[in-house]
Measured scan of single mutants.
Amino acid sequence: MDVFMKGLSKAKEGVVAAAEKTKQGVAEAAGKTKEGVLYVGSKTKEGVVHGVATVAEKTKEQVTNVGGAVVTGVTAVAQKTVEGAGSIAAATGFVKKDQLGKNEEGAPQEGILEDMPVDPDNEAYEMPSEEGYQDYEPEA
């Protein structure tokens, strides 16, 4: 019985440690998101679009440190934060509304985080759909 109880105690310690790591990862992701939003706020009209992409990228980098179902929630929060940063930029006159959601080359930025393969159960990952990809044929 002692062996059984000791095993359960060790398992509990492992769960607590994993929860603490997840909590730490979420806190880091939130900190990076805040950094990115402050970065966007300090940019001029020309830099705002690039700044919004930076927020998304920093958040995406930190999301990889967070495991399990938390990833889905962090990704949703990050996307809403990026959308909010863009709205703030438009409201303050840093950028025109028609410039939001495009990178410096004018290509749409939507789907940055949505296409990231995420499995809350950590069982399997699927690649994003290939609808947006084109076949590449090298020139002879």
Rank of each mutant, 00 (worst) to 15 (best):
Y39H: 06
A140H: 08
Y136K: 13
K32L: 06
S9M: 10
T44I: 14
L100F: 03
D119F: 06
V3G: 02
D119C: 11
L38A: 06
A19H: 04
D121Y: 12
K32H: 10
E105Y: 12
F94V: 04
G41L: 03
P117W: 11
E114R: 05
D115H: 12
V70R: 04
V63E: 01
V26K: 00
A11M: 15
V95R: 08
S87Q: 11
I88C: 03
T22R: 01
G51A: 14
V66H: 03
G73E: 03
H50I: 03
P138C: 09
P138I: 05
T92H: 03
D98K: 14
G101Q: 07
T33Q: 00
G73Y: 10
E83Y: 04
V37A: 09
K6A: 11
A140R: 10
Y136N: 05
T81D: 02
T64Y: 05
K97V: 10
V82L: 12
T59L: 05
A29S: 01
A89E: 03
V15G: 00
K34T: 02
T22L: 14
A140T: 06
K10D: 01
G36N: 12
E114P: 06
E123D: 13
T59E: 00
K58R: 15
P117N: 09
N65I: 12
G67C: 15
A85I: 10
V77Y: 06
T22W: 15
E105S: 14
T81Q: 02
Q79L: 13
Q99R: 07
T54F: 14
E28T: 10
G73Q: 11
A56D: 01
L8D: 00
D121G: 13
E131D: 12
G31R: 15
A29F: 14
G73N: 08
G36A: 14
H50Q: 11
Q109Y: 13
K12A: 04
M5T: 01
K96L: 07
A107E: 11
G84H: 08
N65G: 08
G84L: 13
E104H: 08
E13I: 05
D2C: 03
K58A: 08
N103D: 14
D2A: 02
V55R: 01
N65A: 08
G93W: 07
K34F: 14
G132F: 12
E137Y: 06
M116F: 01
E131Y: 07
E131A: 11
P128L: 12
F94G: 02
E61G: 10
T44E: 00
Q109N: 00
G86P: 05
Y133Q: 07
A17F: 10
A76T: 06
T44Y: 11
E61S: 13
Q109I: 07
V66E: 01
E126S: 06
F94T: 04
E13V: 05
V118L: 11
V26G: 00
T72K: 10
F94N: 04
A69F: 08
S87Y: 14
Q134C: 11
K80A: 11
T81P: 02
A78L: 12
P120C: 08
V37T: 01
A19L: 15
M127A: 04
P108H: 14
G93D: 03
V40K: 01
D135P: 05
I88Q: 02
V3C: 03
V71G: 01
E46W: 05
G31N: 09
A140M: 07
V3W: 04
L113R: 10
V77N: 02
T33I: 05
E57F: 13
N103E: 08
N103L: 05
K6Q: 01
F4G: 00
G132W: 14
I112F: 04
G68H: 03
E57W: 11
V70Q: 01
V77Q: 02
Y136T: 05
K21F: 14
A29N: 01
D119W: 03
K97R: 12
V77R: 03
Q134M: 11
G106K: 07
F4Y: 15
V26D: 00
G68E: 12
V16R: 14
Q62K: 09
V70N: 02
T81W: 05
P117D: 08
A124H: 06
E123K: 10
D121N: 05
K6M: 08
A17Q: 07
E61P: 02
E35D: 13
Y125F: 15
D115I: 06
K45T: 05
E137M: 06
T22C: 07
V37Y: 11
T75I: 07
P138E: 04
G106R: 05
E139M: 08
G51D: 01
G101K: 03
F4C: 02
P138S: 05
K102R: 14
E105T: 09
K43S: 03
K58Q: 03
A19N: 01
I88A: 02
E123F: 10
L100T: 08
V55S: 01
A107G: 14
V55C: 07
A91L: 09
S9N: 07
E126T: 07
T92C: 07
D98S: 02
V16P: 00
G84N: 10
K32C: 02
E130D: 10
S129A: 08
V15D: 00
A11H: 00
V118Y: 09
V37D: 00
G47N: 04
E13H: 03
N103C: 08
G106P: 10
V3Y: 03
A30S: 02
M1L: 00
N65S: 08
G84P: 02
M116T: 11
V55F: 07
E139I: 11
E105I: 01
D2F: 15
G68N: 06
Q109R: 07
T72C: 13
Y125W: 10
A89P: 03
M127R: 09
D135C: 08
K45V: 15
N122T: 10
E123M: 14
E83S: 03
E13L: 02
Q24C: 04
V48L: 13
A53R: 14
G7F: 06
A17N: 07
V16E: 02
V55L: 15
V15S: 00
E139A: 13
E46R: 09
L8Q: 00
V40R: 02
P128R: 07
Q134V: 03
T64H: 12
N65Q: 12
S87W: 15
A91T: 05
E139R: 09
A85T: 05
T33V: 14
D121S: 08
G106C: 11
K45I: 14
G25W: 13
E130T: 10
Q62E: 02
G67D: 01
G106A: 08
E104N: 15
K10M: 15
L100G: 09
G67T: 10
G132K: 06
I112Y: 04
K96G: 10
G41P: 00
K21H: 02
E28R: 05
T72Y: 07
D115W: 03
P108F: 09
A90E: 03
V77W: 14
S87A: 15
P128N: 08
V37I: 13
E104P: 05
V118G: 13
Q109W: 05
V3Q: 02
V48N: 00
H50A: 13
A76I: 09
V16M: 15
V16K: 14
K23R: 09
G86L: 14
Q62A: 11
Y136V: 04
E137N: 08
V55D: 00
E57N: 10
K80Q: 03
K60S: 04
Q79T: 11
V49P: 01
N65W: 10
Y39S: 08
Q109K: 15
T72R: 11
A124M: 14
D98C: 08
K34I: 05
